[in-house]
Design a protein around this nucleic acid. Structure first.
Lengths: 157, 157
DNA sequence: GTCTATGCAAATAGTTTGCACTTTT
DNA sequence: AAAAGTGCAAACTATTTGCATAGAC
């Protein structure tokens, strides 16, 4: 899906729900699809403030993000730090995350074998699977290297 | 590990950190290990209020829960509803969770094959795995049955 | 013109914290 | 006596909401 098609899909989504295409929504939408990174609502709000043009309030940022999640344009990721992260899903197959507990770096991965076993578990338990959430926490390659240079047993918590 | 041993382990943990064994800690500890269910801080606070004996404040409940997590006596589970759940780990091997999005029911499962693939993914990405978090969200057997009785396409969101 | 969206500030919810006082060690 | 713990209420953080006004359709 390219930018024009995505934009069209968004406008269709709004129409089907009798929602309006406001400048705020248009600008938030454009900004969100201009990045492939994970970001928080507050970060997006900062981006919007930095832009020229119509001001966008924090409330509208939050409301529009929820809308985008409902419309399956975006997904949320909870890295366990107290604030939700968002990422758009277009051109992005489903994936899970590795979160570095030292520097916050987030990497993505997909493993169809894990997915298959998850479905098997759900079936065994009689659950109708809707979605799942898998996060692997640890020290990323770079942070592991840094840590290895320090004397062991010293404040490694 | 039986109750006496657990109690002893807790006291040892307090000693190594030069922390004190207060009636509040003792009572919270006992209460927490008396249940195998997942519970929230607020729920635990309610239990403590209902008990006879020294009053325990909300702040102490929170502080003691954090302490128990640090000491690896308990683990947290974030069901995505805004409040953390706690569960003790003794006599409980590591496990992941199935969360029913309709009724909130939580079931546990373990799948060594999934665990193994997780380790493989981490290795491939150069991460030193510390812990992970896998939640499968869906409709539990009972809620799926209930839902099947309703006409389709009707407010199934 | 109708109905929805926006901005603002206040409200919320779960959790944390500062502080004066109490208790354990 | 020293050091840590407790209870209380206030503070915090991320997010949501009520309401009056503005804007899309």
């Amino acid at each position: 899906m390219n930018q024009a098609k995505i934009q069209h899909a968004f406008e269709e989504f709004l129409k089907t729900r009798a929602l309006k295409l406001t400048p705020q929504r248009r600008r938030i939408f454009a900004r969100v699809f201009a990045t492939h990174e994970h970001f928080s609502a507050e970060t997006l709000y900062g981006w919007m403030r930095a832009e020229e043009g119509s001001r966008v309030s924090r409330a509208t940022v939050y409301r529009t993000l929820s809308l985008l999640v409902e419309g399956n344009f975006m997904e949320t990721l909870d890295p366990g730090t107290g604030e939700l992260l968002y990422e758009h899903v277009l051109g992005h197959r489903h994936h899970d995350h590795l979160v570095c507990t030292a520097c916050g770096r987030i990497e993505e991965f997909t493993d169809e074998r894990i997915e298959a076993f998850q479905r098997e578990v759900a079936l065994r338990k009689g659950f109708t699977l809707q979605y799942h959430n898998l996060r692997l926490f640890g020290s990323c390659a770079s942070c592991t290297r840094k840590r290895a240079r320090r004397p062991l047993g010293k404040a490694n918590a």
